[in-house]
């Protein structure tokens, strides 16, 4: 199945078995191993990438369904020496222990901050018509699709708040 994907700004042409998930296409066929396979069932969020600007679980979609789409992975968000503000904040706030969930956390948080700035409410937002503040409660709710088995959650929340300028 021929599939064209634009990954982190670079066009890639792949010829894949239709069963290939977007996650396996990234990791096994393009060598982009930043996106992690945790549960492979959409429960842990370690595989989170952005497709056309929106965060999704790369393990629960087929690469061939995304012909022509733009994908951003952790490799496109920052590189050594050129970290994104969220990556800087995860380092300074100690937002991880083993680090396995971290690429997914950062891809997810990058898109989540965009969702908040676009005025998307969440389950814990009191007023559906208003704009949500970036409280710890809002961050926890919006990041519930990303698990951290080391349970670095308090520092992940602080890192996201710091990157968003909430407690700078």
């Amino acid at each position: 199945m021929e599939t064209k994907l634009t990954i982190n700004g670079t066009e890639q042409r792949l010829d894949l078995d239709p069963r290939t998930t977007l996650l396996d296409a990234l990791r096994h066929h393009l060598g982009l191993t930043g996106s992690k396979k945790g549960c492979d069932h959409g429960q842990c969020g370690a595989c989170t990438v952005m497709v056309n600007g929106r965060r999704i679980n790369a393990c629960l979609t087929l690469a061939c369904m995304h012909d022509g789409d733009e994908v951003t992975t952790i490799e496109g968000i920052g590189q050594p020496g050129n970290l994104s503000p969220l990556q800087e904040a995860f380092v300074s706030e100690d937002g991880f222990q083993c680090g396995y969930c971290t690429p997914g956390q950062i891809c997810s948080a990058t898109a989540m901050l965009e969702e908040i700035s676009n005025g998307w409410p969440s389950h814990v937002t009191d007023d559906l018509s208003g704009k949500a503040d970036l409280t710890p409660e809002e961050i926890s709710e919006r990041m519930s699709g990303n698990l951290c088995r080391c349970s670095a959650y308090p520092n992940i929340v602080e890192a996201i708040r710091k990157a968003a300028g909430e407690n700078a």
Binding site: I56, L60, M112, P121, L128
Partner: peptide
Amino acid sequence: VREGWPVLSRALLAGASGQLRNK
């Protein structure tokens, strides 16, 4: 939907995760 059918917005926001709701 948020204005006229808020029960639907609330139900959707109570389901799944941000990543899954996007898909």
